[in-house]
């Protein structure tokens, strides 16, 4: 029975099927919001789904000079990494199925893989555009990864645990950590924007500079897998930030006495609302700014984001040291 449940978890909810559906929905929300910010109508709701199906059915081309095995393997690698990462994030009640002490580190690690995969993909497709893109992606990786990791360290220090579920439980019994570290929340959202390679940090695939950047030579189902991996990365990133700063499934309502179904409903609704809120923020950032140049991006990250996250970290350690929590 438990094996059956486990398989269900993995394949249907919150695993494979739900995640893909939700990721495509999130992409729709993002594109629609972006379009509405620009005073347009935007795509219909099933648009991402249609894109994926179409890409899956397209002719498959691999450039002559490219390494066929690598080109085929890399998208799968990225896709698997982000899907795995999602399994550690609690979304509806106070135990994530695969939760263990230290899963925060695993999630952070898995979230870095898509960027590395993109880099390899760009490198191995032997197109000069994608090679320039790959260079930029890897340069950018070092810039945003540092503040992102530093700032996500804060909640772990406060809650005295490396487990995401513990941090969430700490928040539901005390208060949401965004109240204590608003600075950290802002830095985390900006760094996530960089991780997802969106404006103003879409330097690796800057469309007007190096056409499609990393994925120039990617066609058909490999491109579909990459797009999906990036969509899922967005869901995982949003869910992670909402779990660490916005109290995860906590919705101000005491769920102790309620039935498991109601508990599930409330927690899940809170999850949806919070991730959508973060996607809204991400879409706003995307609509607000111009693209930075790679050197400006690196300077920005090390001059502003990293110091801010260190200040935040020092504050947190101070609070902890004083024994207020």
């Amino acid at each position: 029975m438990s094996i059956l449940l486990e398989v269900l978890y993995l394949l249907v909810f919150p695993g494979f099927l739900f995640l893909i559906a939700y990721a495509l929905f999130i992409e729709y929300v993002d594109r629609k919001l972006y379009a509405r910010f620009q005073h347009r109508v935007g795509p219909p709701i099933l648009q991402p789904f249609a894109d994926i199906i179409k890409l899956l059915s397209k002719e498959d081309l691999v450039p002559k000079k490219a390494d066929r095995k690598m080109v085929s393997a890399i998208p799968l690698f990225a896709f698997a990494a982000v899907i795995t990462a999602f399994l550690y994030i609690p979304i509806w009640f106070n135990q994530s199925f695969f939760s263990f002490q230290g899963d925060l580190i695993v999630v952070l690690y898995l979230l870095s893989i898509p960027t590395l995969a993109l880099f390899l993909a760009g490198w191995h497709s032997s197109n000069p555009f994608s090679q320039v893109g790959a260079m930029r992606a890897i340069t950018q990786l070092f810039a945003y990864e540092v503040p992102f990791f530093l700032v996500l360290l804060g909640p772990a220090i406060i809650a005295d645990s490396w487990s995401i579920i513990d941090i969430v439980n700490f928040q539901s019994s005390n208060f949401w950590l965004i109240l204590m570290m608003p600075l950290g929340f802002i830095v985390a959202v900006i760094a996530l924007q960089g991780k997802l390679e969106r404006i103003p940090f879409d330097i690796p695939d800057a469309e007007t500079e190096i056409v499609g950047g990393l994925l120039v030579e990617y066609v058909g189902r490999r491109l579909a897998l990459f797009r999906m991996a990036i969509d899922i990365e967005m869901v995982v990133g949003a869910a992670l930030i909402s779990a660490l700063f916005l109290g995860g499934f906590d919705a101000f309502i005491s769920v102790a006495g309620l039935s498991p179904l109601a508990q599930f409903g409330i927690g899940f609704a809170a999850f949806l609302v919070k991730t959508l809120f973060i996607v809204f923020l991400l879409a706003s950032i995307r609509a607000l700014f111009a693209r930075l140049r790679i050197d400006q991006m690196v300077t920005f990250c090390f001059k502003w984001l990293a110091p801010l996250s260190i200040i935040q970290l020092l504050l947190i350690t101070g609070v902890k040291y004083m024994g207020w929590f």
């Binding site: 919001l33 379009a35 509405r36 910010f37 620009q38 005073h39 347009r40 109508v41 609509a287 607000l288």
Partner: peptide
């Protein structure tokens, strides 16, 4: 941009 979110789009359908 936030004001345009609630405005009717400029698109002629």
């Amino acid at each position: 941009i936030w004001r345009h979110l609630i405005k009717k789009p400029a698109t002629v359908l």
